[in-house]
């Protein structure tokens, strides 16, 4: 449904963000991967009716976007585009859960609506965290970090190869489907039979390409082993980054900061 060219452009844009040079970009990718994991786990560990307590977690994406010099609008747009998918399932909550939990003046808010909103906030936070991780780290570095954290090398190599050839193959797929679209005069979809041979064709070409790549690898002494370069350094800055964020997330998980703040503010204002 999305145009291939559009997807590819978006992909390249996101990919190019990782070439930035900021203090965050320079951190060892392992620290960034681990912090993102702690973030996501703490966020999703909230109960289903939790809403306010999740809000302070937006501090994390906000700070990283700031320090990492990322285009906030672009990332917000990407996140916003994905939230409707979470909503599709969340929208059933108000239907099934009609117990009134909060009375805001004349407005009775049911548990369903709260948990629905909670799901959307969760989605925004977790999706945002993933995109930001990618934007400040870059896919190859994430793979290497995961490999150093114990991911099998065969899978790391697979990820790197996939990543490299996504660009090539998606362009090829785009050309094929453009060639088809130009001759189908407005019929959007593709008949099954034509689809089968179109994909079959693409598959065969892919297969031949794999054979050529294999030749090129053999020609340069490939024997089945992959050697990777450049050791990362997990130093003091990384440790501070990791521990600092983790401590904050856990504190925010245990303390409802907005409520504390709210109580404090309203208390003072009285």
């Amino acid at each position: 449904m999305l145009s291939i060219d559009g997807v590819l452009l978006d992909f390249k844009r996101l990919d190019s963000l990782a070439t930035g040079d900021s203090a965050i970009h320079r951190l060892d990718p392992r620290a960034k991967v681990l912090v993102t994991l702690v973030f996501i786990v703490t966020v999703v560990s909230f109960g289903r009716y939790e809403l306010t307590a999740m809000v302070p977690f937006f501090i994390f994406p906000a700070v990283i976007i700031g320090l990492g010099n990322l285009p906030a609008g672009y990332i917000a747009r990407k996140v916003a585009l994905l939230c409707p998918f979470a909503l599709i399932v969340a929208i059933f909550n108000p239907v099934f859960d009609r117990e009134v939990l909060v009375q805001l003046g004349p407005l009775a808010v049911t548990g369903g609506w709260i948990s629905c909103a909670s799901i959307v906030v969760r989605a925004a936070l977790t999706v945002g965290a993933a995109i930001i991780l990618l934007a400040v780290t870059g896919f190859p570095a994430i793979c290497r970090a995961l490999e150093r954290l114990g991911m099998p090398q065969a899978f790391a190599v697979q990820l790197l190869f996939l990543y490299r050839y996504i660009f090539v193959l998606t362009e090829e797929g785009g050309r094929v489907s453009r060639a088809r679209a130009l001759r189908s005069y407005g019929n959007r979809g593709l008949g099954m039979k034509a689809y089968g041979s179109l994909l079959g064709n693409l598959l065969l070409r892919t297969w031949l390409r794999a054979e050529r790549i294999h030749m090129a690898m053999l020609a340069r002494g490939f024997t089945g082993e992959f050697h990777t370069r450049r050791e990362f350094r997990f130093g003091g800055r990384e440790l501070v980054y990791f521990l600092g964020w983790s401590a904050l997330f856990i504190t925010l998980r245990l303390q409802n900061a907005p409520r504390l703040l709210g109580a404090l503010v309203t208390g003072i204002s009285r």
């Binding site: 291939i4 997807v7 697979q158 190869f161 090539v168 193959l169 794999a210 790549i213």
Partner: peptide
């Protein structure tokens, strides 16, 4: 090694080409 890599990329690309369900 390369075959799995490019077939993954193929799958990725193929998932973006749509057909009409009869």
């Amino acid at each position: 090694v390369p075959l799995m890599g490019v077939l993954g990329a193929f799958l990725f690309a193929a998932q973006m080409i749509n057909f009409t369900i009869p």
